[in-house]
Design a protein around this nucleic acid. Structure first.
Lengths: 212, 212
DNA sequence: TAGATTGTTAATCGATTAACAATC
DNA sequence: TAGATTGTTAATCGATTAACAATC
């Protein structure tokens, strides 16, 4: 990012995948162009916010016309780095790890799963989604030979910090952590902590409110 | 909520589970009390924000002393409705549904899984975490006989809207949706859309930024 | 050209932080 | 009591919305 560009607020970044999703839907529906106003109605946000958000990246529209759906879709994908060919490994081939490995949704968005690791002898050697589960003992070896951008951590909470550190030491630049604890690294390592229990708790709060 | 109470901003609600998690850790470490300042350092937020947040609910501390960790933990749990004995069903016993069913993390926070449903003959009748998978055809029957608060949707995207509507029609008050689409109901139905791909995309963005 | 709609500046709103009196 | 720390008000900051000139 050059110095004269404003830093894009995190809240804007978090909205990009949602735009991406809606634009993907529009493409499927063969919609060629859309105005910020029409999109704002679909997405239940203000047109002003949409235009502000896009303008952090220079603006992708045309006065009097609106936005070319496919162009905008591709631009947002580019901003999000979906064309960078990021590779992932999953560490922890338990139920959640296996679910994510066989999910396919990540691959569809341009992320390539290149390895799955576990420490359970019974699991090592089994094949998930065409990939043979390796022993975590081979983690460093594997990472030395293969560039891996993102580590998906589905190991038990007790193992997550050590595992994360091993990945980072081997050059992994981003971590997606599913353990019920928070990972924190220097800001050169990107971390997303996914706490499904937290989501369930906020849902519970909302339900409670609706009762009153 | 009574009229003279300020509505608690969504951003504050989303922080509550995080407080809950950190306070749970402190209890495990046998910490009996903590000041907003000490907690702010642990959690990497401002002490001011912590005090403001708690004061939306009336304040749980004592001047000159700080906060009683266990008391605060329980109060936040109460606010989040973790003591309400909310029941859940999982619809969609694919990889992700099974992973969540056998996860155990939700049960630990006071949510009780009472049913799992699928439409695949091969899956119906199998037992996950002590619960026999039922046919989705029995959904209405089951919901008529059992109070269910929360529906966890791990069905394919194509089925999610119809499934959600069936649940809501039978009195389910909250939905946790894992499909790559957004559910929207009247505001008396609480919805949390969990988009793991979105999280991966923001992670990808951050990695891209760190490269530059 | 006239109409539509963006890009962008200005105004508003809400959330965060700072400050400090209250009080344990 | 003196010191510590909350609860709460005021100040600041940032994000959202409104408005409109630029322009396709």
């Amino acid at each position: 990012m050059s110095d004269n560009e404003k830093k894009v607020p995190a809240v804007v970044i978090k909205r990009l995948p949602r735009y991406y999703r809606y634009l993907g839907e529009l493409i499927k529906q063969d919609v060629k162009r859309i105005s910020s106003n029409a999109l704002s109605i679909k997405m239940n946000v203000t047109a002003s916010q949409i235009r502000q958000d896009f303008n952090y990246f220079g603006g992708f529209g045309q006065q009097g016309y609106g936005y070319n759906v496919e162009y905008l879709y591709n631009e947002i994908g580019e901003i999000l780095g979906l064309n960078d060919g990021d590779t992932t490994v999953i560490v922890g081939a338990g139920n959640l790890g296996r679910a994510i490995a066989s999910h396919g949704a990540f691959e569809k968005r341009g992320f390539k799963l290149v390895g799955i690791f576990d420490n359970n002898e019974k699991v090592i050697g089994t094949v998930i989604n065409g990939i043979e589960v390796m022993s975590v003992d081979n983690l460093e070896d594997f990472l030395a030979k293969n560039r891996v951008d993102i580590g998906i951590l589905t190991v038990p909470k007790a193992a997550v910090v050590e595992t994360a550190e091993r990945l980072v030491k081997c050059g992994v630049k981003g971590l997606m952590n599913f353990a019920y604890t928070e990972l924190n690294f220097d800001k050169d390592i990107a971390v997303e902590n996914v706490h499904l229990s937290d989501t369930l708790m906020t849902l519970s709060y909302k339900i409670k409110q609706n009762k009153n």
